[in-house]
Amino acid sequence: MAPRVSLFVTCVVDQLFPKVGIAMADVLERAGCIVDFPEGQTCCGQPAFNSGYRDEARGMALHFLDVFRDCEYIVSPSGSCTAMASHHYAELFHKDPARMDEVRRMASKVWEFSRFLTDVVGVEDVGARFEHRVTYHDSCHALRELGIKTPPRKLLARVDGLTLAEHDATEECCGFGGTFSVKFPTVSGGMVRTKIDSIARSGADTVVSIDSSCLMQIQGALSRAGLPIRTMHLAEVLASR
């Protein structure tokens, strides 16, 4: 039976990179999923949680649980927002055993997009074509909280015409960190410059990742440095033909 997928597009994609959400829907449908978009969704609460506003984050988490309660699979174009729902909600509700059951159930239903394709749908070749030299940025939360290292690479390996050129600092943080980049703009700037130096050394013309917020940070620095390298979400690459 075709998996029924509810998109959790995240604030950043909804507001800043809407095409990433559409690309994700396209790819999932091509892979045989039935896709819907629960309109009541807002923010998972991560910015509040990461800023130390736990009560506020809890309110937002409750809303998230409500909106997605009856969904079969919830798929998101972000490792970071996925990890918030699958890993950090437990920290918000650990004193509330009744709620914890629901939190655990939710954790097993929320998937990051690339891993959902390889591990649940079981596809690696989605029929994409993209003739570029690509380097992949491991976003920290996808890599270290969700352990996602190979799924995006498996998918990229099957894209027609694509060459994968890893950069040496692929596992190094881009320096975004949400409010970190606002609270410590110069440190964040220093970090992303280290990142783009490494990206430039790889000779790639496109940086791909599974988190749009990292890509926004990297793109911002590439553009400021005048480097002719663009950023694309994995979903956009996989939607290309």
Binding site: D14, F17, V182, G189
Partner: peptide, 26 residues
Amino acid sequence: PIADWLSQRDLPPLPPKTFRQLWRER
């Protein structure tokens, strides 16, 4: 705060429509 942010990097061009709008059209 955005000016501080922009001291280090550029903002992406903001899209004219949100995902929600694009989804409804789609």
